[in-house]
């Protein structure tokens, strides 16, 4: 287990190693009573450790499915998924994965701090790896100090989503999978959380795979954008985002940003 300190160490973070996630010709088919759906076909890509990949694509193109395959929630019908050099199942069992769901998926009978502590109560991980932040520190990291004892129904949608991000960060996962985490939020909250997410990513050095519908969100957040095409879900293009590492939301008004966004829009249109 690499400690938080090691992840923050640029020498370690930048060391060229095995990719954090690698998919080789992954296909997923769902067989239902009425028909067989090919959610993904021939999907191959890899993500370097510590990088940020946005997953962009039209509705129903298999973004969630791809994330579920990496999280070992759905087995691939064909192909191979490698996470941190091993199988997805090993990564899951080693608590190397964090998952943020679209609707936060907080447990309503637990307070914010109890929700964040859940990963320490199940799956045989009762102690934090040395040096990794406590649930209280993680709530502070997502800007929710003072809300520890609030129940989910007492929080706004944006706050609930932050709690779920804090929960996904418990134990310092090496890979963070986020499925449209800000999809249900208003634009201002979303902008704010986008900036916070970039900060958290830079502070923790976690590898992030981020699903979104929004071209701007994908461009602003990612180092790379993977554009998926629908029917069947397949890789349309992998677009590197050559924007500076230190970004603020203002960057979205620059010509460079606009050009990238326009290119992604074209790719989506053809997808």
């Amino acid at each position: 287990m690499v400690t938080q300190a090691a992840l923050l160490d640029p020498a370690v973070a930048e060391a060229p190693g095995a990719p954090a996630i690698r998919c080789d010709d992954v296909a997923v088919r769902f067989i239902t009573e009425r028909r067989t759906v090919t959610a993904l076909e021939n999907v191959s890509f890899e993500i370097a450790e510590g990088s940020f990949l946005s997953l962009l694509g039209p509705s129903g193109c298999g973004k969630s499915t791809l994330l579920r395959v990496v999280a070992d929630l759905v087995p691939p019908t064909e192909g191979r998924v490698t996470v941190l050099g091993g199988s997805a199942e090993t990564a899951r069992r080693d608590h190397a994965l964090g998952f943020v769901f679209q609707d936060a998926a907080l447990l309503p009978w637990r307070t914010a701090i109890q929700n964040v502590s859940l990963p320490l109560e199940v799956g045989g991980r009762s102690v934090l790896p040395p040096g990794s932040p406590t649930p209280t520190e993680l709530l502070a990291l997502v800007g929710l100090s003072g809300w520890e004892n609030a129940y989910p129904h007492e929080l706004s949608g944006g706050m609930r989503q932050r709690v779920s991000i804090a929960r996904a960060l418990v134990g310092g996962p090496k890979v963070l999978l986020m499925d449209e985490p800000f999809g249900a939020l208003d634009e201002i909250t979303r902008d704010h959380l986008n900036e916070e997410l970039r900060r958290i990513w830079q502070e923790t050095g976690t590898t992030i795979l981020f699903v979104t519908h929004s071209i701007y969100e994908a461009t602003f957040l990612g180092q790379t954008v993977l554009v998926l095409a629908a029917n069947p879900g397949r890789v349309r293009e992998i677009v590197p985002i050559d924007l500076p590492a230190d970004r603020t939301l203002d960057i979205r008004e620059t010509d460079h940003f606009m050009r990238i966004a326009a290119r992604l829009r074209r790719l989506l249109g053809e997808a």
Partner: peptide, 20 residues
Amino acid sequence: QAMELMRVLSASPREVFFKL
């Protein structure tokens, strides 16, 4: 989704029963 969360956390069936 809570069920999937429990699986991502590698919760045992017993933990899923009592915690969820």
